[in-house]
């Protein structure tokens, strides 16, 4: 079944700040973003050195880490939602890809792709099962009954991408999706992520150190010490 292309709302941040308590009880700021807007369907890269706050920003955008300030997804004020509503929003709108794939190794390829469906359904609807199989085929994962444990790293990340794309999310968040892969596997995952986002019209926000990946995104913001330093637009980025 072909995925339906949905229009993604814009993502807007104003005066976003995250603080954590140190051992002494003093609070320190780990993220401070005065303003950031991500246009509908935009592919945004987040770059910067380790400890700059890239993953923290991604977690805030996913509604996993509450902070002060404003975070809006179109008309939805995410920063004002209670946790249960944020979980529901994430389930309905977000696809997540992790550096280390974060599969359940004891489950099969198909069960891993379908895992998010179990959060809402007792039985997997037939159309979603068909889409999972279709995605597995697209991702060159023919053996859907194979345990994830037995896959190569490249295959595991492709399963993770299929899992993220299953429900046609309007926002795809990727945290160093190519960092654990060799060059060829990384290139394949980049293609799949960008292709998947393009096909569904989803907004893609990726934390990455991979220059090849960043070069294919529309815009890259650089972070340092919890704040945005610069933003650069890729003229040769792959526009939708």
């Amino acid at each position: 079944m072909p995925p339906s292309a949905a229009v993604s709302p814009s993502l807007d941040i104003e005066n976003l700040m995250v603080t954590v308590a140190e051992g002494s009880g003093r609070r320190i700021t780990i993220l401070d973003v005065p303003a950031l807007s991500v246009a509908p369907g935009e592919r945004l890269g987040i770059a910067g050195p380790s400890g700059a706050g890239k993953t923290t920003l991604l977690h805030v955008l996913a509604g996993l880490l509450p902070g002060s300030g404003r975070l809006a997804w179109g008309a939805v004020e995410l920063s004002a939602l209670p946790e249960v509503a944020r979980d529901r929003w994430r389930r309905d709108n977000v696809g997540f890809v992790f550096q280390d794939f974060a599969l359940v190794p004891e489950l099969s390829v198909l069960a891993n792709i379908l895992l998010p469906i179990s959060f809402d359904h007792w039985r997997v609807p037939a159309h979603l099962r068909a889409r999972a199989i279709e995605l597995a085929t697209e991702m060159a994962l023919p053996e859907t009954s194979r345990r994830a444990l037995l896959l190569s790293r490249g295959e595991q990340q492709r399963v993770a991408v299929a899992r993220a794309l299953l429900c046609c999310p309007r926002l795809i968040l990727a945290d160093e999706p190519t960092a654990s892969l060799d060059a060829d596997s990384g290139a394949a995952v980049i293609d799949l992520l960008i292709g998947g986002a393009r096909k569904t019209g989803a907004t893609l926000i990726a934390v990455s150190h991979d220059a090849r990946f960043l070069a294919r995104l529309d815009r890259v913001v650089h972070m340092e010490q919890g704040g945005l330093i610069t933003a650069s637009t890729n003229d040769d980025g792959e526009r939708p």
């Binding site: 996993l64 997540f96 974060a102 179990s118």
Partner: peptide, 14 residues
Amino acid sequence: RYAVLRALGAPRRY
């Protein structure tokens, strides 16, 4: 593993 489930959208009660 459970944190990943939550990141994928699983509610706490799941």
